[in-house]
C-alpha cells in the first residue's frame, strides 16, 4: 500500500528533522516543571521583592493546581508545536517540488496526506504519553497520587486537542504554497475557536470544552456535555477530507 511507504518516510522525517525529539523534550519538560511550579508558587512569590505582602493571600497549592498548570502548559506549547510542525507539511513540499516528484509515481494523494497526519499523531501521542508519565511522578512526589484512570483520560483528551490543530494546520498547508500563510490561518482559527469556546451557553460545544471536561474528570466529576468532543472529531475529519478534496485536483 502506498500509505505504508509514505508513512515510513514521514516517520523518518520526524526523526531526522529532530521534530520527534523536540516534541518529547518540550512536553516532558513541561510535564516535570508544571507540578514543581505549582508547588513552589508561594515560595517564588516571597522571593520577589515586595512579594512577601502577598504570600499570606496565596492558599497552599494543591494537587489540582499541579494538574491545572500541566493542562495549561501542555495545551499551549503542544498546539504551538502542532502549528509549527504542520505549517510546512504540504506547502513546502509543493513549493520545493518534492511533492511533484513523489506524486508523479504511483503514490495516491490521499496516502500522501494521511501519512503526514498519521506521523504527526504518532509524535504527539508518544510525546504526551512521556510527559504524562513524568508529570505523574513529579506530582506524586510533591502532592500525592493522581487517579490513574482519570489521568489517562485527561491526557487522551489533551492529545486529541493537539491533533485537532495538527489537522487544521495540515488543511491550510494544502491550500497554500507558503508555510507562513498556513500558520497564520491556523493561528486565526485557534483564536476564533478560543473565542467561540469562551462564549456563555454555546461555548461548551467547541474544542476548548475538551480541556474543561478533562479537568472536571480529574477532579472526580462527570462532565455532562460531550458535544465539544464530537465537534473536535468532526473538525479533524473535515480538515482531512477538505485537504484531500483540495489536494486531489491541485497542480503540482
Amino acid at each position: 500500500m502506498s500509505f505504508t511507504t509514505a508513512f515510513h518516510k514521514e516517520l523518518l522525517e520526524q526523526r531526522r528533522t529532530r521534530r520527534f525529539m523536540i516534541a518529547i523534550v518540550v512536553l516532558v519538560l513541561f510535564g516535570m516543571t508544571s507540578p514543581l511550579l505549582a508547588k513552589m508558587t508561594p515560595q517564588i512569590i516571597t522571593m520577589i521583592p515586595g512579594g512577601e505582602a502577598f504570600s499570606m493571600l496565596i492558599p497552599t497549592p494543591t494537587i489540582n493546581d499541579a494538574v491545572a498548570q500541566y493542562i495549561k502548559n501542555i495545551t499551549q506549547f503542544g498546539v504551538l508545536l502542532a502549528l509549527v510542525f504542520g505549517m510546512g507539511a504540504v506547502a513546502v513540499e509543493k513549493d520545493k517540488g518534492t511533492a511533484a516528484m513523489t506524486l508523479s509515481k504511483p503514490m495516491t494523494r490521499w496516502s500522501f496526506l494521511l501519512a503526514k497526519f498519521a506521523a504527526m499523531s504518532v509524535t504527539f501521542i508518544i510525546a504526551v504519553l512521556v510527559a504524562a508519565i513524568a508529570c505523574y511522578y513529579y506530582t506524586f512526589f510533591l502532592f500525592g497520587e493522581l487517579a490513574i484512570g482519570a489521568w489517562l483520560v485527561l491526557n487522551g483528551l489533551v492529545t486529541l486537542y493537539l491533533l485537532l490543530y495538527a489537522a487544521i494546520t495540515l488543511f491550510y498547508s494544502t491550500l497554500t504554497r507558503t508555510q507562513y500563510v498556513a500558520i497564520g490561518l491556523s493561528f486565526g482559527t485557534l483564536i476564533l475557536l478560543g473565542i467561540l469556546g469562551s462564549l456563555p451557553g454555546i461555548g461548551a460545544n467547541f474544542p476548548d470544552a475538551l480541556i474543561s471536561n478533562a479537568s472536571l474528570i480529574m477532579m472526580g466529576e462527570t462532565p455532562k456535555n460531550w458535544s465539544g468532543l464530537w465537534v473536535s472529531l468532526g473538525l479533524i475529519f473535515l480538515s482531512l477530507a477538505g485537504a484531500w478534496l483540495v489536494f486531489r485536483k491541485q497542480e503540482l
Binding site: V25, V28, L29, M32, T33, L36, K39, M40, Y138, F141, L142
Partner: peptide, 13 residues
C-alpha cells in the same frame, strides 16, 4: 528538598 526533582530538568535542558 527539590534537588532530586530539579536535576532531571536541568540535565534535559
Amino acid at each position: 528538598k527539590y534537588l532530586p526533582l530539579l536535576i532531571p530538568i536541568a540535565l534535559l535542558q
